[in-house]
Simulated scan of single mutants.
Amino acid sequence: MMHYSNWKAAHDGVTGWFSDMSAGIVDAFLDYQDQKGIPGDLMEIGVAHGRSASLINLHARTREHFIAVDCNAPLLEEAAALLRGQGTGQVIVHGCDSQALPAEDFRQGCVRFMHIDGDHGRGALLNDLTIADQVVGPEGLLVLDDFLAPQYLAATAGVFEWLTLHPKRFEMVLAGHNKAYLARPEAARDYLFFIRDQLPAQLRARGTTDFTFWRMAEPEDWRGFGVAGRQWNRDFVGLREDVNEPERPAAERFAIF
């Protein structure tokens, strides 16, 4: 069920830096998980005022939890009240720095969707990714904030460093608009097909049209997509495509493997 419109109407005024494009992509991925029946809780490190958390939490099903982590106690209290007022799943709060999260509080693979928007330092990202590796399930999705943002290059360095040190734990399926989207390698194929075959239509259904997806590498080098502002009035641009020619049908567009 698409929650984007209800979220815009009720929570667009919540303070934060969660763009319409990122909100549309996150909502579409969560809808995809809902339709597939992927189980698990929802989690965010760095909740702040609850702008992004309020959208993610709308997808909580019966008996699922939203796990909210933030070291700023007044902000966390404010965000928790907002999330509990939505009347969806149970909200569990951890008022601490993510490096102090007790590991015993989390079951292995208990989370299906995790958003990391906490301390943007390299060391913090290394720690938060280690937590994600413990909690994100086999079909789960991990979203990293401010990826490739010039203001927070240490965070970007931390992401690539962790992925290099822990090969085959996560695969980046999409990056753009200051977010990176990572899946477990065994689930990446399905997410890549979703991006290729469904995500453009899902974004349009949410009123978002300023996008072009890029695939500028061979599958054996890099399977993921990039997304940026619209160019050449095309949904996709590939390594060997002539942008002056008509865009090919989705089924013929890219070899995922």
Rank of each mutant, 00 (worst) to 15 (best):
P167V: 02
V47I: 11
A228K: 13
P249V: 14
P200D: 14
N178V: 07
A9D: 15
H49G: 08
G229L: 08
L30G: 02
L42N: 04
D105S: 14
M172F: 05
F170S: 09
D70C: 08
F113K: 05
L141K: 02
I195V: 11
Q231A: 07
Q99V: 10
F194N: 01
I38H: 13
I131A: 00
F147T: 09
D242S: 12
A81Q: 14
Q35C: 10
W7G: 02
L75C: 08
G95L: 03
L58H: 11
D41M: 04
I131C: 07
A124V: 01
N244E: 12
E247T: 10
A255V: 11
N178F: 07
D41A: 11
T130M: 06
L192P: 00
N127T: 13
M43C: 15
A103I: 06
R169S: 12
A79N: 06
Q35Y: 14
R204E: 09
T62C: 04
R61N: 01
G95Q: 05
A68E: 02
V69G: 00
M114N: 05
A68W: 03
L239M: 15
C96P: 03
L129Q: 02
A251L: 11
V237D: 06
G123Q: 15
A250R: 10
T164I: 11
H94F: 09
T208M: 13
W232E: 07
P138W: 13
G238V: 09
R184P: 01
G224Y: 03
L144S: 02
A228E: 07
L203H: 06
P249W: 10
G118Y: 01
I116K: 05
A132W: 00
A157H: 10
M2F: 14
L83W: 03
G226Q: 13
S19C: 04
H59W: 03
F18L: 06
L76Q: 02
E77L: 07
P200I: 01
G87Y: 07
E104F: 09
L58F: 10
